[in-house]
């Protein structure tokens, strides 16, 4: 098992796995709450092995128009992350972050996308900060610059899982659902460990 896999393995299989994942997501939720100026809570992170054929239907109707914020973990820990936000929530979040009254954004222009990209950047950075802190890693854990995609859910998830599909019929993901307290908004964070397949082989 190489160094990359060791980090993921400790997160997924280690004795403190649930505690560490829970705490990391707590910090992401706290950061998002600060940004959105409302309380956002998270459910218990779940680690799932999902058949690729089912992945597109897990987050909602494949034809639903959604916003995906896509990032990669590039340094110190490899993997891919996607935040899946309903379009309406994405526009509300853009309004909140940019200090505009709710309902100002009616489409996702360049500025709104930039706001959402920053949300993705901050969220993954908070996650990596927490991992570094809780696991005592001394190396820098750094995300890629984010990409914001607006498309049908099925199309976005296809993009997300394409590379994995070449290697396996199943996908290992870490899933957390974030919700505001009024439960009017909900979005998902999926993490795909970069060494999922190798890790799965090691495990077997």
């Amino acid at each position: 098992m190489n160094e990359q896999e060791t980090i993921w393995d400790s997160l997924i299989n280690g004795p403190r796995s649930a505690e560490i994942l829970g705490t990391t997501m707590e910090r992401v939720a706290r950061g998002l709450s600060d940004m959105a100026e409302q309380i956002i809570i998270h459910d218990t992170p779940k680690i799932k092995e999902i058949p690729l054929a089912q992945i597109a239907t897990r987050a909602g109707a494949p034809e639903a128009e959604i916003v995906g914020i896509y990032l990669q973990m590039e340094t110190g820990m490899r993997g891919r992350v996607i935040m899946i936000l309903p379009l309406g929530f994405a526009m509300n979040l853009a309004d909140l972050m940019s200090g505009s009254p709710r309902g100002t954004s009616t489409r996702l222009g360049m500025m709104e996308r930039s706001v959402l990209a920053e949300v993705g950047n901050l969220s993954l950075s908070y996650f990596l900060n927490a991992v570094a802190d809780l696991t005592g890693r001394s190396e820098m854990l750094q995300p890629s610059p984010p990409a914001v995609i607006v498309d049908m859910l099925g199309a976005i998830l296809d993009l997300f899982i394409t590379s994995a599909a070449a290697m396996s019929d199943d996908l290992l993901i870490v899933e957390t659902i974030f919700t505001d307290v009024a439960r009017t908004m909900q979005f998902r964070l999926w993490m795909l460990p970069g060494s999922t397949i190798d890790w799965a082989h090691d495990k077997g």
Partner: peptide, 23 residues
């Protein structure tokens, strides 16, 4: 947003005058 001690240490050792976390 990379509020990690390794990042802060690298930046300061490289010559940054200060280090602030987003937001």
């Amino acid at each position: 947003a990379l509020d990690q001690k390794s990042v802060a240490a690298t930046a300061i050792m490289t010559g940054a005058k200060d280090f602030l976390a987003k937001p």
